[in-house]
Design a protein around this nucleic acid. Structure first.
Lengths: 150, 150
DNA sequence: TGATATTGATACGATATCGTACTATATAGT
DNA sequence: ACTATATAGTACGATATCGTATCAATATCA
């Protein structure tokens, strides 16, 4: 059983990688020049999950080195999309807050992408993608937990 | 119907992005220092699809700018994993050939990842991932074709 | 055939991502 | 309290990725 199946799992991640690349390119084409998915992702996370998180918490959430988050946040500060304030509970730490400008930008970005998503929805109706999302979510949750064990 | 469903499709790509990030990190931890997934991906493609492709063909296959491919290939040449030869059919063009060293490296990389994939296979048996792969493949094929229409 | 447009690759510069090292603060152990 | 260790963030340097401009070769077409 091994080799052939292993190849299948290999393909699974291959497909995921290609789709991610295609989706990124598509999304970035809808974002203003110079704004990348990585910038949007932070804003989106701050809205969806919660405000005032530390850079380190964001780094963990995105599976990315903390230095990368430092850089991305500095860009967002420059755009005026987030505020970086000292953490009252810990002198070493900071808290990231989204600004009104950041919030509107995030909303506009989502609106700009909506037509594309609607087009996809027309071809792959909810009934076909729901199981996909569920399966991917299960895989993501497991991989995320596994990572912490390492 | 729109908004709630749109959010679901948004989540689909979100899950895909996170898994890609996790898978990349996992794979790169198994690769020798300094070798990235992007390097491996080229070698793997040359073996799986075929040898002697042009840089531009690779750029298209990976949905990446051709300048990125130029750079990645130069790295692989430096490692001695590929040869870059002139294209006899077109004076502007080159052909990328994998070397024996590149081939063995690719095989070793896959072998190094096998235990992780086996671990995943133990938790998500083929019966559960096959529909996932099929669904993702369909999505990838459609998005790929759609991109060409733009 | 000659002028024009297109194409494949690269040079170059800008930004993103990441690893290492460092500083300041907090925590643990004595 | 004091020392040792751990942690949060950042500075810095290296490489990756990408956009624009450029050059050479090819294709188009009058």
């Amino acid at each position: 059983m091994p080799d052939k199946n292993i190849a299948r799992y290999f393909q699974l991640f291959n497909e995921i990688g290609i789709i991610d690349q295609l989706a990124r390119a598509l999304f970035e084409a809808r974002l203003p020049d110079g704004i990348l998915v990585s910038h949007f992702a932070i804003l989106n996370h701050l809205v969806r999950v919660r405000d005032g998180q530390t850079p380190l918490a964001l780094a963990r959430a995105f599976q990315t080195p903390k230095t990368t988050v430092t850089h991305t946040i500095s860009v967002l500060v420059r755009y005026g999309f987030v505020d970086l304030r000292p953490n009252p509970k810990d002198g070493r730490s900071k808290c990231v807050f989204i600004t009104d400008a950041g919030r509107s930008f995030r909303d506009e970005a989502i609106a700009a992408l909506a037509p594309d998503l609607a087009e996809i929805a027309a071809v792959f109706p909810p009934g076909t993608v729901e199981p996909l999302i569920d399966g991917l979510e299960a895989l993501r949750v497991w991989m995320d937990a596994r990572r912490d064990r390492e």
